[in-house]
Structure formats: C-alpha cells, structure tokens
Design a protein around this nucleic acid. Structure first.
Lengths: 115, 115
DNA sequence: TATAAATATTATCATTCACTTATATATTGC
DNA sequence: GCAATATATAAGTGAATGATAATATTTATA
C-alpha cells in the first residue's frame, strides 16, 4: 500500500483529516481498541462510529480482529510512510472506559501475546 | 504556527488534502509561483484558483508577494513539522508556461536574489 | 430456540464545499 | 483619465459528506 501519486495522497489525507477519524487514529497509537470503546469515547451514535471505522478499514488504514461479538481495530502496520509519520505526530490519548458490559469482556490480548 | 491539538491538525489536513490545493503545494516545492501560472496549470477558472490560494494563505500555509499586477506565492517557511514533512513527501512537478503576457512579466527573483 | 448484546447497513437529511458566472479592485501604460 | 491586464470577491448551485433513526446481522448464552 503506497501513496504514489497526488490522487491517492489526496484521497487518504482527506479520509484521515476528518476530526473524528483523526482522533480514532490517535487512540489507536496505543494499540488495539474495541468498537464499543470508540462508542464510549465519542459523543456520536454507534452507527456513526461504525461508518467512520468502515471508511478507515476500506482504505486500508486499520485492520480488524473479531472475537465473539466484539470487533477490535488496530493500525495497519504497513502504511505509507507519510501516513505513519502523520499518525506519529498525533497526540497520545487516554482510553476511557467502555460502555459495553465490561464484566463479560474477553481479556484484550496485549502485544506480548503475539496476535 | 503550530498544530498542537487534534482540532488544529484536522483543520489544516482537511485544507491541504484537497487535490487541487495539494497539487499547488507540490508545485510550490520548487519555489515561488505566480497566480497566472496556476491558472495555466489547472483546468479551472481563475476565480477557483484564487479561492484555493486564499484558503492556503488564510491558513498560513503560503505567503504572497505582490509585484505590480502579479502576485507570487511561496510556501510559508515556518510550517508545523507534520505539514512540511507532508509537503516533502509530495512528488515534484514541472511548472508549465504561464497564460498571461509573459513578454511583460517581470523577472521572477530566484532564491539567490534573497527576497 | 429465544433473547440480549455488539456491530453493521440502509435510508434520509442538513451542512459543507468546490465550482461557475458576474462583478469589483488594483496596477500599468497610453 | 481611460483602457487593458491580473487578481479578488460575491452570489448561486450541485455534489459530497457526516449525522441520525430505523433495521438487519451475528454471536453468546439462558
């Protein structure tokens, strides 16, 4: 996945520059995040969150991992350099508590579990 | 001029990500460029060009230099790092010939003239 | 299998945005 | 001052976009 020409770069930058999606990427700097966590963090409806994530996923910016009913998203490790540089420039955000039934949440496999 | 928070970054990235404006910045990597040159390069009306340049100027991405009837634009040397990095990632474009009366054009002062 | 929870999809709507046309402003040279 | 050139501004329009509400899909569990 490379942003060779201006057309592609324009497309990806426009996709990323939306405030909600840019904030999503800032959160994903820390690692995986569940859809329900995004729903908890933003003052937006669940469908709105879902649609933003779909755009990022379709563009290849993020990857998904399904575990039961939950869907976890993470940054695509193979991003164009100018995109990963941009993400690196984002402030790091703290993840708030999830709105879903956290007691039933499967343990989020951390990096060291080697997913 | 710094893009500290996500709000500012979103604003600037959205502004830059437009294909026409991104292409303008790619041209400006080479140095100054006259408005009439932009008009010659793009398949857009003169007012459309003017409005794009105004957005870039108002946001502090580019600076202007007036010389007679002509207006030259150049990159603001003091851009947020993540913006200048982005511009550096842009392909370098060749400037086509201007549509205005080139015979009357004042000589464009190059970098070595120390404007 | 029925229910609930998490997520995705669809339809619709309001807003934003980039474009065009028309007009205004500014500078140069006669 | 007047005409021509370069650029900017204003008004209006169509398309793209982000939001919501309603509904569908999927999975776990009682």
């Amino acid at each position: 996945m490379k942003g060779i020409n201006l057309e592609d770069m324009s497309f990806l930058l426009k996709l990323i520059s939306d405030k909600t999606r840019l904030t999503m990427l800032a959160y994903l700097k820390n690692g995986e995040m569940c859809v329900c966590e995004f729903v908890a963090v933003f003052d937006l409806s669940q469908p709105a969150i879902s649609q933003h994530l779909k755009k990022l996923r379709t563009a290849g910016i993020i990857c998904e991992r399904k575990q039961g009913t939950w869907v976890y998203y993470r940054l695509n490790p193979d991003l164009p350099v100018y995109i990963s540089d941009l993400i690196r420039a984002l402030p790091t955000l703290i993840i708030k508590k999830c709105s879903c039934q956290t007691s039933k949440l499967p343990p989020t496999p951390s990096v060291k579990d080697g997913v």
